[in-house]
């Protein structure tokens, strides 16, 4: 297993490196003058040329890439064109927020999704299954930002229970209650899609597993149905669900730009999108690499989980 992990780690590093190359080259092929992107359009010729040389735009792209890579590896992510602050500072401000919301959303999604899916799978055709399946289908098509706006309309404008915007950690000034109120709507909007997808996947996995011979054996042992479902069926049914969870792990760092915009949350999603629109190259590259790194890690984590969950893979 150890060797397997090492091999996958090396692969992951290779992938991330390739992505850094692609993203760097791609950004420079995109139209839009990077000098204007930094300084704005209201500048003199001298200012333009000064910035031009400062950004090494006169050198070939490979040299620029190598310089960039060297700096990157030493922790210097460059300075944002838009904000004129080090990119690491921006990331340090926004990444925790996105990760906080992302992890909460992930945990809720997994718990609810697996639970609902199990209920559906074990009560096939009955009321519980039908209702939950309809809800799951709805949940997978409803856009998160629509839900956000509707929620805001109901809970903020009309009822006044929850704030329309803003975000603060529980340990910051306003207190735990205020932070919680601010967190509820964004987390719900982020989670709905995942819950729906996980429910459906778990349901179909459950339906397949519950027909298997070993479930019949478990029942013939006289076990309670709940024990059969939880201890025997779920462990098998959850294996394909792990793949799906793995796919959505990257949302922890990539955030969701639409929901962040609606709730005025300063997260990674809006950072990435706004940086792309403003051609803020250092930020774009840093974000891409962080997301790529996360994807690589989540793939690795999923593989390890498989090995843990399914002994047939672990032990040859």
């Amino acid at each position: 297993m150890g060797r397997y992990i090492c091999k996958r780690l090396l692969q992951a590093i290779l992938v991330i490196f390739l992505i850094s190359v692609f993203s760097y080259f791609l950004m420079y092929l995109v139209p839009g003058d990077p000098v204007y992107a930094v300084l704005g359009s209201d500048i003199t010729r001298e200012q333009y040329m000064e910035q031009f040389y400062l950004m090494e735009l006169d050198k070939p792209i490979i040299i620029r890439y190598v310089h960039w890579l060297t700096r990157f590896l030493t922790g210097d992510f460059g300075t944002s064109y838009r904000y004129s602050v080090p990119v690491s500072e921006l990331l340090a401000q926004r990444l925790p927020i996105t990760m906080y919301l992302g992890i909460i959303s992930l945990v809720i999604s997994v718990i609810l999704g697996v639970l609902c899916g199990t209920i559906c799978g074990t009560n096939r055709g009955k009321a519980a299954d039908n209702i939950l399946t309809v809800l799951a289908n709805l949940g997978s098509v409803v856009p998160g930002f629509w839900l956000a706006v509707v929620g805001m309309y109901i809970f903020s404008m009309n009822l006044g229970w929850l704030p329309s915007y803003g975000f603060a950690f529980p340990w910051e000034g306003a207190g735990v209650a205020a932070s919680l109120k601010q967190t509820i709507m964004p987390v719900v909007c982020l989670s709905v899609g995942s819950i729906a997808g996980l429910t459906r996947q778990m349901r179909s996995g459950m339906l397949e597993v519950i027909r298997q011979d070993y479930i019949r054996t478990a029942r013939s042992k006289g076990l309670k149905e709940s024990t059969v479902v939880v201890h025997h069926a779920m462990k098998n049914a959850i294996i394909p669900v792990v793949t799906i969870i793995g796919l959505s792990l990257r949302n922890i760092v990539s955030g969701a730009v639409t929901i962040e915009t609606v709730f005025s949350i300063t997260g990674m999603g809006s950072l990435l999108v706004n940086s792309i629109l403003a051609r803020d190259l250092p930020v774009i590259q840093a974000c891409i690499l962080i997301i790529a790194g996360m994807v690589a890690i989540s793939n690795l984590v999923v593989d390890i989980c498989y090995g843990y969950l399914d002994p047939r893979i672990r032990i040859q």
Partner: peptide
Amino acid sequence: INDPATQISA
């Protein structure tokens, strides 16, 4: 606050 809906609501 950048989003119009949020501006209105707030």
